[in-house]
């Protein structure tokens, strides 16, 4: 319950903060941090234009996409305070419910019968497929480390006992940041500001969406960022008092947003054909975490 409110709060300024950072680093003043939210609100008030090729799938897909991310947010805990939904193995539910949303956003892109949108859909399907094992290995490793298999159980039982476990936390943060970048189609993998349809991933899929649906999709991106930020924050919250935990939560969200801004300012987009390999390499980082966990537990004899 607390996590839901906090994530919703963080989602209000997250993308704004990213854009603000990018503006500052490129020497511009930049819009206010609530500008993306205002854009979404403006879109919510508008009517819609539909392609004559599209059908019902195109109209329900943004809703399902939004609902799936909300459902995933319900699973995310805040330190020891569990989310709305919490059971053993809830991280599987988390990953699969997000996949349902992705399934619909992919087929809604195909529903337009466009020559570009299928391209983005294909890439989205491929990249998220490669990101999936990294997440599962990561969660498997933490299940091994803590002996729990729900988000709340894992995060509550996480103790940074040895120096080594700090390294694990750092690596896990790295994995989650990259997964968040892939899932939200951000810079090294996809340039949201590109003007060429051929090089887009996520943006090209929503070319035909307009009005309320577009607003919903854009807002869902904010939510998704805040959700991953919350997951990362949970690694560090553990069992500290609530006021410190709040501080850590927003601190992590701020740092996360600014990091994304900085990455986007100083890197160029990867070559599309190299993306898959790069994302798949993430699984090896996850495996590194797994071997680290084995070391911590003394299973290597």
């Amino acid at each position: 319950m607390i996590s839901l409110i906090l994530i919703l709060l963080a989602s209000l300024f997250f993308t704004g903060l990213v854009i603000w950072t990018k503006s500052i680093t490129s020497g511009r003043k930049g819009p206010g941090i609530f500008q993306p939210l205002k854009d979404v609100l403006r879109l919510f008030k508008k009517g819609a234009v539909y392609s004559k090729t599209t059908g019902i799938i195109f109209q329900v897909a943004p809703t399902i996409y939004f609902a799936s991310v909300m459902m995933a947010i319900f699973v995310v805990p805040f330190g020891q305070a569990r989310g709305f939904i919490s059971f053993e193995g809830d991280f599987v539910f988390f990953a699969y419910v997000l996949a349902t949303g992705k399934f619909f956003s992919i087929i809604s892109a195909l529903d337009t019968g466009s020559s570009f949108e299928g391209m983005g859909a294909s890439r989205e399907a491929l990249f998220s497929m490669f990101a999936e094992p990294a997440f599962f290995i990561l969660m498997g490793s933490f299940a091994l480390l803590t002996g729990h298999s729900s988000f709340q159980g894992i995060f509550t039982a996480m103790h940074f006992t040895t120096k080594f476990s700090y390294a694990l936390g750092a690596l896990a943060t790295f994995v989650l940041v990259i997964i968040a970048m892939v899932e939200n189609s951000r810079m090294p993998f996809d340039d949201p500001k590109t003007h060429l349809e051929l090089t887009m991933v996520h943006e090209v899929m929503i070319l035909d969406n307009s009005g309320f649906d577009l607003g919903l999709i854009l807002y869902t991106t904010n939510l998704k960022f805040a959700m991953y930020g919350a997951l990362i924050a949970n690694f560090f919250i553990g069992a500290i008092p609530w006021y410190l935990a709040l501080l850590v939560f927003f601190g992590v969200q701020f740092v996360f947003a600014i990091t994304i801004g900085l990455i986007e300012s100083f890197t160029a987009r990867f070559r599309m054909s190299h993306n898959a390999q790069y994302i798949f390499a993430l699984s090896s980082v996850s495996l590194l975490i797994f071997f680290g966990v084995l070391l911590v537990l003394g299973k290597f004899i």
């Binding site: 234009v49 392609s51 009005g211």
Partner: peptide, 12 residues
């Protein structure tokens, strides 16, 4: 969306 304008056009 009930009372919003809704246009039909070609795919972009």
């Amino acid at each position: 969306m009930q009372n919003r304008t809704e246009n039909i056009a070609g795919t972009w």
